[in-house]
Each structure stands twice: as structure tokens, then as C-alpha cells.
Amino acid sequence: MFRYLIRRLLAAAVILVVISMVTFFIFFALPNDPALLACGKTCSPNRLLEIRHSLGLDKSLAMQYWEFFKGLFIGRNYGDQSVSIHCSAPCLGMSFQTDTPVMTTLLGAFPADLSLALGSAVIFLILGVGLGVIAAIRKGRFADKFAVGAALFGVSLQSYFVGLILMWALVDKWNLLPSPNYTSLTDDPGQWFTGLILPWVTLVVLYLALYTRLTRSSMLEVMGEDYIRTARAKGLSSRTVIFKHGLRAAITPIVTIFGMDFGALIGGSAVITESVFGINGIGKLAVDSVTNSDEPVILGTTLFAAAFIVLANVVVDLVYGLIDPRVRLS
């Protein structure tokens, strides 16, 4: 198991380096000139060259990547001795727009991002698996049709639509909730919670159907297995049969998908929800940086998202080992 973990982590590191290279070369090979953007309206050729030099854009692409790569581990100084800005490790570069290290920007957006992803993931996982189990054991009956139908209805609505409707109804019309906003958990837990309810609900509506159907089909398959018959033949209660024997085995495919979804959510895939509710998460940051052609930030968010997805996959594999002894012992 330990060797397996080492192997997975090594593989993950290699994947990340490859992703960083690919994104780096794609974004920096783009035709628009970041130095020109940074230079602003009162730009002179000399100033442009200066900026080029201070951003390191006058070096070859390979050199630029090497500088970037080094910066990840030992930090990096921008500009000349006179006006140098230090970007401490792990340095993802400096934003062309704000002249702040990309890492600082990312870390600034991270709490909101994490709160949104974690909260909604916990809800849609519990709710989806629960509905899926009910649907599976009541297959073909009302509860099944209702659970599957409701989930399908949810996913067929777009998240901005759900978000706006909810806002209109719960915030504007009935004043049940404050206007959605991100407040830091450490500042005010109550506001953190109420402010995030609507974004969570919106995301849950989006993901619930997938998890309900996934759990349902996985459970149906498992409940037809011979070992479930054995469990029943032993005289176990149906609750023990369903949860201890059935769900334990049915959960493995769900863990895989959840790992990827959760990684992607943290990496900013909730961009529409973030925009609708004005929450400054990674997704919104990515969109803004694309609009502004702020390449270091684009690169940073891309790498950040990739890192979480790769990491989530490693965690999924470990969880797999915990669930299934056949994986652990082989």
C-alpha cells in the first residue's frame, strides 16, 4: 500500500509538470503582448522594453519556463535591483494587471471557493446517495420514480436559472434569506452559513441527479449479487443488508466520480454559480483573468485546478484501498 502511494504521488507530480508546461507554452505563445498591456496608454518603446525585461519576456520560452519552474520552489525576483518585487515560493508569477503575486490572488479567492465546494459537495453527496439507495430498494415503485424524476428535473434546469429564481423568491420576495454573499467563516459563522445557502442549493440541484442515478444503478447491481443473498440468508436485518453489505460495495464507483467532481469544483468549475451570486472564487478569478488577458493568472488558476483534480484522484485511490481489501492487498 505504501509503495502504491509513492507510485501514485510520483505519477501525480509528473502529470502536474506536464500540465504546467503545456499551459505555459500555450498561453505564452499567444499573439497578444502582455508587456503592451502592462505598459498602459502612456507607452514609449523604451518603457516597453523595460517592462519586457522586468517581466522576463525578452528571454527564450524555454528559459522563461525554467524561471517559472524555479519560482515554484525557491521564489523569484522581478525587475531590477532598484525596483525589484519579490515573489516568494511557491511563486506562480505576477499578475500583469495588479502587479501582485498570482499566489496571493489565488489564496485570496480560495476560502470562498473551498466553502462553496465543500458545503455543496457534502450536501449533494449525502442527499444523492440517500435518494439513490431509496430509489434502488424501492425500484419501480413511487419512491423510485419520484427520486429519479425530481433529480432529473433539477439537472435539466440551468444553474443561473435556479440561482436567479431562488434569489428572487427567497431573498427579494419573502425576505427569508439575506442577499447571498461570502463572509469569512472566522469573521461570522452565522453569516458565512446564511450567505452560502443559496449558492449551495444551486450547486446541489445541479449535481444531485448524477449522484442519485449513479447510486441507484450501482446499488441495483450490488443488491443482485450473490453475497447479498448470503447476507439475507444469514438472517440479517434489511437495514444491515442494505447499508453494511450493499452500500459498502456500491460506494466505490461513486467515490471515483465524487473525487473528480470535487477536485473540479475546488478548481473553479462552479464559475456560473459564483458569477450569479457574486462570490469571488477561483472560477470567477479565471474568467476575469481571461477577459483581461492576464496570462500569469490564467496559468495559475489552470495549474491550481489541475493540482486539485490530480490530488483528488490520489485521494480517491487511497480511499479505494480502504474500502476494497482486494486493492489494498494486491
Binding site: E225, D226, Y227, R229, T230, A231, A233, H245, R248, A249, I323, D324, P325, R326
Partner: peptide, 13 residues
């Protein structure tokens, strides 16, 4: 009861 295929009749986990 004893079932036919003990590999599938025992819970793998």
C-alpha cells in the same frame, strides 16, 4: 444455506 459459487457468495470487502 450453502451457495454454489463461494467467491461471489462471500462479501469481498
Amino acid at each position: 444455506m450453502i451457495f454454489q459459487d463461494p467467491l461471489s457468495a462471500l462479501h469481498p470487502f
